[in-house]
């Protein structure tokens, strides 16, 4: 049977694909992981890349081999075999992707729940209200005793879950911190929720990823002439100090 001779190729393709997948993962193309949630998402991504590599490897390898083995010579007028299909094979290649995508779906679902729950369950979370506008962001700290309103700068304590509620004064914007693997849109006339637990001290880019007019390009703390500033993750002590200073300045 011709079809059986494909099996070694499929195995080979799996190996080649797995290597491609691992190589892509090793490329370390992601920004640093600066939140508690980032690792889970990166794992999801790596697993994806690995599986994708295998699927790609199999399809392309089998196809390339076919192209060389069954290539028509010049002036070749033969026809191929008149094979119309092999039922078991079709069942296999329907079933395996089906199982795979179900696995992916459940994996992702779990991760989604984990990320949601971990923030919601945290008692001492820091609630921050973000207001986007053309073109910039304002941050209001909602927790008792902080009382900072419309700060142009986002400063957060490390290792404390932060609950964001996000809204906008004019058009849609979004709040994206690539290092936190977190993005949420700001939709007019409603409040969207998201959360993250920063796990690294430092400064990270804030990006508005949603087309919001002529200022959109500059609503990115990484570009020239940025209209928003980076998020500053600081220790709890530094955070308290910042709060005190800011309040003093406002008063």
């Amino acid at each position: 049977m011709k079809t059986l001779s494909v099996l070694p190729l499929v195995i080979l393709g799996t190996i080649v694909g797995a290597v491609i997948g691992v190589a892509l993962v090793m490329l370390e193309t992601l920004p640093e992981q600066a939140s508690a949630q980032a690792a889970g998402i990166d794992n999801l991504y790596s697993a994806f890349l690995f599986v994708s590599g295998i699927i790609f490897g199999i399809v392309v390898l089998v196809m390339l081999v076919a192209l060389f083995r069954f290539r028509a010579r010049p002036n070749d007028t033969r026809d191929g075999s008149n094979l119309h299909g092999v039922t078991w094979l079709e069942v296999v290649w329907t079933a395996i992707p089906f199982v795979l995508v179900l696995a992916v779906a459940f994996f992702s679902w779990n991760l989604l729940n984990d990320n949601d729950v971990s923030a919601a369950a945290a008692k001492d979370c820091q609630s921050i209200h973000i207001t986007g506008y053309q073109c910039g962001g304002k941050y209001t700290y909602l927790n008792d005793g902080i009382g900072i309103k419309d700060s142009p700068e986002l400063v957060v304590p490390v290792n404390v879950p932060i609950a964001f509620d996000i809204t906008t004064m004019d058009v849609m914007h979004s709040f994206w911190v690539p290092a936190w693997r977190l993005q949420m849109g700001a939709t007019p006339a409603q409040t969207n929720y998201t959360s993250a637990t920063p796990s690294k001290i430092g400064e990270f880019d804030i990006v508005c990823a949603f087309l919001c007019g002529v200022g959109h390009t500059q609503m990115n703390s990484a570009v020239e002439g940025a209209l928003v500033s980076k998020v500053r993750v600081v220790s709890q002590a530094d955070f308290d100090k910042w709060v005190a200073e800011t309040k003093a300045a406002a008063a």
Partner: peptide
């Protein structure tokens, strides 16, 4: 493609 006579 597999088992055909593939014209490029």
């Amino acid at each position: 493609l597999w088992g055909g006579v593939i014209r490029m």
